[in-house]
Amino acid sequence: MDLILQGLTAQRGVIEQIAHLARARVVVAIGEHAYRCEGISYNDEVKAQIDVATWAAHLDYAFIDRGRSLTNFKLLVMDMDSTLITIECIDEIADMQGLKPQVAEITEAAMRGEIEFRESLMRRVALLKGLDASALQRVYDERLQLSPGAEKMLAAIKAAGMKTLLVSGGFTFFTDRMQRRLDLDYTHSNQLEIVDGKLTGHVIGDIVDAEEKKRTVERVCKELDIMPSQAIVMGDGANDLKMMGIAGLSVAFRAKPVVRAQADVALNFVGLDGVLNLL
């Protein structure tokens, strides 16, 4: 097993200090601010020390079995809101109604796992009733941005021959546009009901909650004739945990504590392309 250390900046001296905690024999630079520590000692005590030291230094760490590479995987699965993109779309839509604080509070509680996702989505969407549907395009044009490192990560994923799946508790209006913009292979999300150019406050069809996200990953894996263990799954909220739980590698990206605690790897400071340094 190797220890990967990376950050937006990373001083060699700090890296050496943290590597010493793991009793690393060799420290190899693998990127401008990324290092692989080889010949390490690994146990719960060491992991706890590394966790504290890296957080203080604004570095991300991961203990990875030596020899794992992108070639071990066939599918990259991404959550959308606050993972592939920087915003929670529903919060920004609500802002057009002057209701962002109320909706954002429910969103946060759901992502922390304090409210069941299905209930939280229905409550939030209901608050949008009567909003002109043009607000969706405004959110896309004015507020939606890709998370740092997204395009670099996707370029490498595609070059490795992997397929991509965007599965979201958000809305088809945005996932459809992300699919076209980024040339993604699969998407699955919720469809807002629009009548006479206005949001009705309802979702059409079944809600894409945690269980449906997991089923979607299983369904796409079956279609590709691969095992879920050949998928990398990235997410940030409690509704991502079930699909992350069946993945070969689960990545918590700038995630809630409940997600960081259960994921194989947490990227708290670097961009999405930080996953490339792990493999």
Rank of each mutant, 00 (worst) to 15 (best):
M80G: 04
T172Y: 01
A252G: 09
V52S: 07
L279K: 07
F63I: 15
E114G: 03
A135M: 08
D81F: 03
L84T: 09
T216H: 04
M178T: 13
V139M: 05
M234Q: 03
A126W: 02
D2E: 08
L146W: 05
E218V: 12
G235L: 08
K163T: 07
D273F: 01
K47T: 11
A24W: 00
L184S: 06
I115Y: 02
D79Y: 04
G271M: 11
M243I: 11
T9G: 01
A62T: 13
E88H: 11
E223Q: 15
V167I: 13
Q17H: 12
V14S: 04
K213D: 08
T172W: 00
C221I: 12
A266W: 01
R66S: 14
Y42A: 13
D81L: 08
I4S: 01
G7S: 07
I85H: 02
D91P: 12
Q6H: 04
A156C: 09
A210H: 08
V46Y: 01
F63D: 12
I90R: 07
I90W: 00
K198R: 15
Q191C: 10
I194D: 00
K213N: 05
P257I: 07
V139I: 10
A109P: 13
L59V: 05
R23Q: 15
V52P: 05
R12M: 07
Q137S: 14
A263N: 08
V139G: 04
T175R: 08
I64E: 01
E38D: 10
M243S: 06
R68E: 02
F63M: 12
T216D: 00
L249W: 02
G170N: 11
D206L: 12
N43D: 15
D225Y: 04
K242Y: 05
A247L: 09
V233L: 03
R260Q: 15
A53D: 09
L127K: 14
A247I: 12
I93E: 00
D95G: 10
M162T: 10
N72M: 03
V27H: 00
I64V: 15
L279G: 07
F253H: 10
G113P: 12
R260T: 15
Q102V: 13
R118H: 10
V259I: 11
V217P: 09
E45G: 02
K74Q: 12
I194F: 01
L182I: 13
L192W: 03
P101F: 03
A24M: 06
F117Q: 11
R181S: 08
S82G: 07
R124F: 00
A62Q: 07
I40D: 01
K214Q: 15
K198I: 06
R254C: 05
A231K: 11
V167Y: 00
Q179F: 01
P101A: 06
F174Y: 13
L136Q: 04
V208G: 05
H202W: 02
Q137C: 03
T175S: 10
I194W: 02
V26Q: 14
V27M: 02
V220Q: 05
M244R: 12
T175P: 10
C89R: 05
D209Y: 02
H20D: 14
M243F: 09
M178A: 09
A133D: 11
R36P: 00
I226P: 14
D176F: 02
V139S: 05
S168M: 09
